[in-house]
Amino acid sequence: MAQQVQGVIARAKGEPVRIETITVPDPGPGEAVVKVQACGVCHTDLHYREGSINDDFPFLLGHEAAGVVESVGEGVTEVAPGDFVILNWRAVCGQCRACLRGRPQYCFDTHNARQKMTLADGTELSPALGIGAFAEKTLVAAGQCTKVDPDASPAAAGLLGCGVMAGIGAALNTGNVGRGDSVAVIGCGGVGNAAVMGARLAGAAKIIAVDIDDKKLETAKVLGATHTVNSRSSDPVEAVRELTGGYGADVVIEAVGRPETYEQAFYARDLAGTVVLVGVPTPDMRIELPLLDVFGRGGALKSSWYGDCLPSRDFPMLIDLHRQGRLDLDAFVTETIALEDVEKAFERMRHGDVLRSVVMF
Rank of each mutant, 00 (worst) to 15 (best):
D181L: 06
R232V: 04
H227N: 14
A155E: 13
T244M: 02
A156L: 00
V183G: 06
K221T: 12
P154R: 00
P236Q: 06
K147A: 13
D213E: 13
L243Q: 13
P236I: 06
G158E: 05
V229I: 12
G190Q: 03
A265Y: 07
V237A: 09
G187P: 02
D211T: 11
T228A: 09
T226C: 11
N230H: 12
T174P: 08
A204Y: 04
I186C: 01
D213K: 11
T274P: 09
K216Q: 07
G190K: 01
I186A: 01
I212C: 05
L243I: 08
G163I: 02
I253K: 00
S233P: 11
A195H: 00
D250H: 15
D235S: 13
G248F: 06
N173P: 09
V185F: 00
G169A: 07
I253Y: 00
I208A: 01
M197K: 07
V251Q: 09
A156Y: 00
A170M: 06
V164K: 01
Y267K: 14
G163A: 13
C162W: 03
I168M: 13
V251G: 06
G189E: 03
I208Y: 00
I207M: 11
A202M: 02
G198Q: 01
L201P: 06
A220Y: 05
D211M: 07
V275M: 10
V191I: 15
S231L: 13
P259C: 12
V222Q: 15
A209Q: 06
D181R: 07
A199L: 09
A209C: 10
G190M: 05
N176P: 09
G190C: 12
G192L: 03
G257H: 03
N173H: 15
A156I: 00
R241G: 06
L160S: 01
M165R: 01
V240A: 03
L159N: 01
G245L: 11
V210D: 05
L201Y: 08
K147V: 12
R258T: 14
A156N: 00
G169D: 07
F266I: 14
P281E: 09
G163M: 03
S234R: 15
A184I: 13
I208V: 08
S233M: 14
G273L: 04
S233C: 12
T174Q: 10
C162Q: 02
G180A: 10
G273V: 04
G178S: 14
A166D: 12
N193P: 04
P150K: 08
V191C: 06
A170N: 08
M197N: 04
A195G: 04
A265D: 07
A170Y: 03
S182P: 02
A209W: 04
S234Y: 15
D270E: 13
A255H: 03
N176Q: 15
L160A: 04
T228V: 15
D211E: 08
F266E: 10
L271I: 14
